[in-house]
Design a protein around this nucleic acid. Structure first.
Lengths: 318, 318
DNA sequence: CTGTTAGCGCATTCAC
DNA sequence: GTGAATGCGCTAACAG
């Protein structure tokens, strides 16, 4: 062409330079630079079937649990020269499926974080293309799990050792694996320590939901509450403050995910998170799958622990 | 083909159904469903040159200012059946440019949020493809600006009215338009109220940077500080607390962006933000550009105001 | 090492 | 309204 070479040579210069003489490479690259030639990504993808794109789908970008995870997958993908689509399902399985379909055609693999889709939907998806799950435990699909059970267990034991004889668990989304895991952990720990456990619902894991659930908590007469996550816990703290209920004097509160740092008042006792590491590991797994074409059944578990701060205290005398 | 029709007919059914008889449409769609046929996005993009993808590039996904903005652009893009790539530049102009290049080939437009690239780089980019800027004021390029100047002005006036006669501004990133805007606002307001103004540097807008800048603040003898953003302010609060300096008794602190709500202690006085609206507007502008092929020179300004909370108080007597 | 040929899956002329 | 032919820009298999 312009450089006195054929298309294929140009193509090879940009895709498999090792099979081309140094001299031609230089010549072609020089001309390319000069006329501003850039390989067309779309045409290449059509021809090879490889896009070097992945998609990360989360329930709510604005939930502080996810951004570090997203940033970590981004970094990791970048390192492998992959681009990443972001999908925000808004906690809806329906929107999540729509996103997966829309995105499916232009990605080589997907990372589903805290997916709200059904096991069947996910399994079907995994048949079609490389898939890594975060915080969703499905056999035969590579998954990264943040084991908040351990930290949650510790929090109940901590409360028990402070003299509490009952605890309320404030649920997160019903379809959430993390929520089931945490609720079960509370249940088990409560049973082991022979303390009572109640559980109240709370639609979406937000500050506002937490604030609104306070009336139910007060009504239950509970003196210790374990919240689905920090956002809910923060809302609960606010609601409690509005009702002049002092924490931890009148009631103890534990969150989960440690996304707020020590920024609440009182500083929230919570369960550590490792969303960043989860994102990195998930992306690494996916990259490996794409490079080796192997579909290993990995189940990668990340541990958590209780972070002591100032919202838990001795059970008030009755 | 399978439905007893040609490729072209199938193609038309999915792209320009108005030129096809109702009957064939039904037949083709039925068969398509049955054999799980889906138009290949890549081939279509190659043929038409349209991807229905956009890219949003931010300096730091994990900075709580951006997620609501990202979510809003997502929503808006979704509504128009566009997919969105997310780019995380890590506050680096170099990485940002790399992302733009990598992404450039598969998107129809870009949204650059708080871009760290030079005016020249951005202008060159805007020549090549539809581009919308957020928090960057470049003539002839559609842009959405959050006018934190107004709120920042109010915060200095608020401090002055509390009797403060000097203020320290803690800078954000040097390349940041928002930082220049805020610093200038502080300077102007300080001059107008005839109070002294100093300014200290702070590499990246993070909690840690804020904590570390406290020694400089103390050394300056200041009794009022306006921080680049809430994260920095939060770090400052932490650093102050470590040094047993009471807020607002000994020193007043104002943040910017209101990303922490009332979650700090004491609750942070700050400047309201509208990142969500900014994201939505930016995406709408971009969608309009893509649909009409017109490159209007819009300069959309969103206003801010001071949010009074508990970190500002009367100037201590000397 | 490099040129030639064919085809990725679709949209788009142009006929019918 | 519908079918046949051509090209989007690139990679892959096959020659030389």
């Amino acid at each position: 062409m312009a450089a006195g070479v054929s298309r294929s040579t140009v193509s090879r210069v940009f895709s498999r330079p090792e099979s081309i003489s140094q001299d031609t490479i230089r010549r072609v690259k020089a001309i390319a630079e000069q006329i501003g030639y850039l390989p067309n990504h779309t045409a290449r993808a059509l021809s090879t079937g490889r896009h070097r794109n992945i998609a990360v789908i989360v329930p709510d970008v604005a939930n502080p649990f996810f951004p570090p995870l997203i940033a970590a997958t981004q970094d990791e993908a970048d390192r492998h020269d992959y681009c990443v689509f972001l999908g925000n399902s808004g906690e809806s399985a329906e929107r999540e499926e729509k996103l997966v379909n829309r995105l499916g055609g232009q990605v080589e693999g997907l990372i589903l974080v805290s997916s709200r889709m059904s096991d069947q939907q996910i399994a079907a998806l995994a048949e079609r293309r490389p898939l890594v799950l975060v915080n969703r435990d499905l056999a035969n699909i590579p998954r990264v799990l943040i084991d908040s059970a351990k930290g949650t267990l510790e929090s109940v034991e901590h409360l028990a050792s402070l003299g509490h004889d009952s605890v309320v668990y404030v649920n997160g989304p019903g379809a959430s694996w993390s929520n089931r895991q945490r609720r079960n952990a509370v249940r088990r720990a409560a049973a082991a320590r022979k303390i009572k456990m109640k559980s109240v619902a709370c639609q979406t894991p937000t500050f506002e939901s937490g604030r609104q659930v306070v009336s139910q908590i007060s009504a239950s007469g509970a003196r210790a509450v374990v919240a689905f996550d920090d956002l809910v816990a923060q809302g609960i703290l606010a609601g409690l403050a509005e009702n002049s209920i002092k924490v931890p004097r009148d009631i103890s509160v534990v969150g989960c995910d440690d996304v707020l740092g020590a920024a609440t008042y009182p500083a929230l006792t919570t369960v550590s998170n490792c969303s960043e590491e989860a994102g990195r590991v998930a992306c690494k797994l996916l990259m490996e799958m794409l490079e080796t074409n192997a579909f290993a059944d990995v189940r990668y578990v990340l541990d958590t622990h209780l972070v002591f701060r100032d919202t838990t205290g001795p059970a008030p005398s009755p």
